[in-house]
Every structure is written in C-alpha cells, then in structure tokens.
C-alpha cells in the first residue's frame, strides 16, 4: 500500500474528520485539485462544493462552504465555516 496522507477536516463547531487517507479531492477557488501523500506545500481558498475523501476502496463525501485548504508535509488540513457529511 502506498504512503498515507494525514487529513483533517475542521469546522468551528467540531472536528469532522481526522485520520490517514489515500487521496482527497477538493474544490479550490482556482480549480479542483487532488492531494496525495507527499504533495508540495500548498494553500488555497475553497469554493462551495464537495470534498471527496478516498480511504482504501471506500469514499466519504463532505459538503463544505467558506473554507480553505492547507497542505504541509505533515498532511492536509481543511478549515471550513460550514461542513457536513453527505450521506
């Protein structure tokens, strides 16, 4: 199995997700992007849209609004004013 990416999704009310994942796709303000482990340091604001989190063969989807993403060598953090899991 390839290297895992540490991902956390935090809203002002609570931490919605925190853990190791394979890939995260997010709606950047200048275009959608995917993050894998070992991504270059990168920071962007997010449009309103959906964040797809791939864990193994499974996938979790979150609706986010008013957020931004921060990629560091330690992993990806998405801070969103509004975030909810899509069931």
């Amino acid at each position: 199995m390839a290297e895992k990416l540490h991902f956390s999704l935090v809203s002002p009310e609570r931490e919605l997700f925190s853990g190791d994942v394979d890939q995260v796709d997010a709606p950047g303000s200048e275009g959608n992007f995917g993050v894998l482990a070992g991504h270059a340091p990168f920071m962007t604001t997010l449009k309103e849209g959906r964040v797809h989190v791939h864990i193994g063969s499974g996938e979790r989807v979150y609706d986010v609004r008013g957020g931004f993403a921060d990629v560091t060598p330690q992993g990806l953090t998405i801070l969103a004013e509004h975030a909810a899991e899509v069931v």
Binding site: S29, E30, A40, P41, M43, T44, T45, P73
Partner: peptide
C-alpha cells in the same frame, strides 16, 4: 517545509 516552497492560490 523540508526545503519546498509554499504555493498559494490565489
């Protein structure tokens, strides 16, 4: 950052 530069959008 382990030597890499930050990229910003915008």
């Amino acid at each position: 950052l382990k030597g890499a530069g930050y990229e910003y959008e915008p």
